[in-house]
């Protein structure tokens, strides 16, 4: 159990690619943070630098109160769970879990006890003598978890540990991992590109974009107050609607030839006007006109895809069997509108 603090850490690969731009943050003891972002944004690179599998080009990394930049992975007191599990194929489940302990001079009795305890927690008792090849994907995933928890490390590192599982198992494991991490109280960094995982598991989410941290915040902060259009459109399914507009600084936004009331701010000029599909309601009339296109049934609700003043727009509407006209009237509550700078995409 430990805090992690990172100061101006950056990574440039030998081929000149800058995968991580200088970033600073700290993680509290027992906190689970999720690194999320599109493919290639540097999530794994950042995690692997913390693990010691990748050199830190510049900056300082502390785990607990120790600077570990030059410390071997085995001596950083971390445990990592890999996307493809990375189990030792020639060792049994029990040996896979025991290997790290054995090399740290733990006594045979202690190892056995810890392995049994972990197997109990993860429901692996019946498989201790099997080889990884004789297990299902979900069971392998558990073994990988077991290998991490028997070590009782200061920090867990997860690199997309659930992405090879089917949807049902993924939901189940997500909950289990979260519960286990809470129970053990171990600080954790979790990489995923699945925003549902990010929202449900994280104490805090780090949204990465092209090697930079765009925003750090709790799931609800990220959802309610996205720091940029990137975060707004990346987090949330379906993503936030973004309309290109111009504000006059006195509570009015012009979208094409439509005028939409916004909170009276001082900003005047080009903006992106954001609103979540689930915050929009269909009204009887008098609202913003919406040309309906495709309808996607979700069961509990349905997604109405269409256009406002010629720009793509989606509404998440309750599923009430009512027939829908080609043109609908929408209510865009002023309190639900987000304004982003038209040029930089930053929140205003």
């Amino acid at each position: 159990m430990a805090t992690v603090s990172v100061t101006n850490i950056s990574k440039t690969y030998p081929n000149g690619a800058q995968a991580v731009h200088p970033a600073s943050f700290s993680i509290a003891d027992g906190e689970l943070i999720v690194l999320v972002g599109p493919s290639g944004c540097g999530k794994s690179t950042l995690l692997r630098m913390v693990a010691g599998l990748e050199d830190i080009t510049e900056g300082e990394l502390r785990i607990g109160d120790r600077v570990v930049n030059e410390v071997e992975p085995a001596e950083r007191d971390i445990a990592m769970v890999f996307q493809n599990y990375a189990l030792y194929p020639h060792m049994t489940v029990a040996k896979n879990m025991a290997y790290g302990l054995k090399n740290r001079g733990t006594s045979k009795g202690d190892i056995d006890a810890k392995v049994r305890e972990a197997a109990e927690m993860l429901d692996l008792n019946a498989y201790l003598d099997r080889r990884p090849s004789q297990l299902s994907g979900g069971q392998r995933q558990r073994v990988a978890m077991g290998r991490a928890i028997v070590r009782d490390p200061a920090l867990f590192l997860f690199d997309e540990p659930l992405s090879n599982l089917d949807a049902k198992l993924r939901n189940q494991m997500r909950i289990e991992i979260r519960a286990l991490q809470r129970r053990l109280g171990t600080t954790a960094m979790y990489v995923t590109h699945d925003q549902v995982e990010a929202m449900t598991m994280a104490d805090r989410i780090f949204v990465l974009n092209a090697g930079r941290i765009e925003q750090i915040g709790t799931p609800s902060e990220i959802y309610r107050k996205p720091a940029s259009t990137f975060v707004a459109s990346f987090m949330g399914a379906p993503p936030m609607n973004l309309l290109t507009a111009t504000t006059d600084g006195s509570g009015n936004a012009q979208v094409g030839d439509l005028s939409i009331p916004v909170a009276a701010g001082s900003h005047a000029g080009a903006v992106h006007l954001g609103i979540r599909p689930e915050e929009v309601t269909v009204t009887a009339g008098g609202g913003v006109p919406f040309q309906l296109g495709l309808i996607e049934e979700l069961g509990a609700s349905r997604l109405l895809h269409g256009k406002i003043a010629g720009q793509d727009f989606t509404v998440n509407a309750p599923n009430d069997d009512a027939g829908l006209a080609d043109t609908l009237s929408l209510d865009l509550p002023t309190s639900s509108l987000h304004l982003f700078d038209g040029a930089t995409g930053q929140r205003l």
Binding site: G52, P73, A79, F82, N84, Y99, G100, N103
Partner: peptide, 12 residues
């Protein structure tokens, strides 16, 4: 990744 897992498990 198997070798990397080993790097974390064993320093030698």
């Amino acid at each position: 990744s198997v070798r990397e897992a080993a790097m974390i498990d064993n320093k030698s």
